[in-house]
């Protein structure tokens, strides 16, 4: 497939052109925090395209989303009705996270219309990580810094320009009609390939995770869980920074004869998450809650979708207030001899 070159001084034009057809999101830094924000006439992406502090899931699954507005006569769905969404500058771990969430929200038995309306026809530009961060570990989970499997276009930053390679049909179509692309020269492609190789070899070798699920499944009483729970504050930093955590709560907000139904990110780390109407809580301890989160990511999701629920983005690793490091935990689990 042909590769294109986008000169960096043309990025603004390219994104403006993209905006004609799409609602475009890209990493923007404001007040010390990088997040995917919708571009407009004044908002330009942070061209260094850092890993965002906030996960990209919020583009398609907002933190707080009105799913229904109602009054005493009518009710109206809050599903997305805007332009199709394009995201420029997702990392490979993040584009994989969207795929994992597709499996959740669009599985064979149920289509979540709120996710679907935003996600359908979206155009994903995944940028290769020239310099994976020390906290990155995407290569633990059959992914890599330049993995573009779950994208429409693969982008490589070669200093003065970006090299764009279509991955999907939609990506091929879009790139073919853009006014701001030129054909990539052989030397640019070589440069991009060298960056890919360097980034891949720069990442430390991952441990072998073949036995991880089995060890976890058979050792839920191991003292490792106690140790983890003793440290854990039970806050939602990991879940809310995680690109694949998808649990939500639904609340009705109504005043007099008007109201709205909203769905809001929730986390299994909160006791309220499992509290039943009777007041009984089947998961009353932090140990149970911590276990749930790790088991869900590292065992149950293998059963439900044959993927680990972790993409190795490293956000929880750097943000956890008590330094709970999932990499460290996995390594310790792999050393458990098994006591059944």
């Amino acid at each position: 497939m042909s590769k294109y070159k986008l000169k960096k001084n043309n990025i603004e034009n390219f994104l403006n052109e993209l905006r004609e057809e799409y609602s475009v999101f890209a990493p923007i830094e404001s007040d010390g925090t990088v997040a995917f924000q919708k571009l407009d006439d004044v908002k330009l992406p942070d061209i260094s395209l850092k890993r965002t502090d906030r996960p990209p899931k919020e583009i398609f699954f907002p933190h707080t989303e009105v799913i229904l507005s109602f009054d005493d006569k009518n009710a109206e769905s809050g599903e997305y009705r805007g332009k199709p969404i394009a995201v420029f500058g997702l990392k490979s771990c993040d584009s994989k996270s969207l795929h994992i969430l597709d499996n959740v929200f669009l599985d064979s038995s149920y289509t979540d219309t709120y996710w679907y309306k935003r996600r359908s026809n979206s155009l994903i530009f995944t940028i290769g990580c020239n310099n994976p961060l020390p906290s990155c570990f995407c290569n633990w989970f059959k992914c890599g810094p330049f993995d573009s499997t779950h994208s429409d276009v693969a982008v490589t930053d070669i200093e003065d320009s970006f090299i764009l390679e279509p991955v999907s049909e939609q990506g091929t179509e879009y790139l073919a009609k853009s006014k701001y692309l030129e054909k990539a020269e052989e030397k640019d492609i070589k440069k991009a390939e060298a960056l890919k190789e360097k980034a891949e070899s720069d990442m430390p070798q991952p441990p072998d995770l073949k036995k991880l699920k089995e060890i976890l499944d058979n050792n839920q009483n191991d003292k490792l869980w106690e140790e983890l729970a003793a440290k854990c504050l039970g806050c939602g930093v990991c879940a809310f920074s995680c690109p694949t955590c998808y649990c939500f709560d639904i609340q009705d907000d109504s005043r007099r004869n008007k109201g709205k139904r909203v769905r809001i990110w929730d986390t299994c780390q909160e006791p309220l998450f499992t509290k039943e109407g009777s007041g009984h809580n089947p998961r009353p301890s932090q140990k149970g809650r911590t276990l749930q989160r790790f088991m869900h990511k590292l065992s149950y999701m293998i059963e439900t979708q044959n993927n680990f629920g972790c993409v190795g983005c490293g956000r929880c690793v750097t943000l956890c207030p008590v330094n709970i490091d999932i990499r460290d935990f996995i390594k310790k689990v792999l050393q458990v001899k098994g006591d059944k």
Binding site: D31, T33, R54, H63, L233, G234, C235, G236, V237, A239, F240, I264, W265, T267, E270, P321
Partner: peptide
Amino acid sequence: KKEYSKCIRCNACRNA
């Protein structure tokens, strides 16, 4: 308003 609009309701402040 600027400060608190950044809040993601993770409750880390309360839990710490």
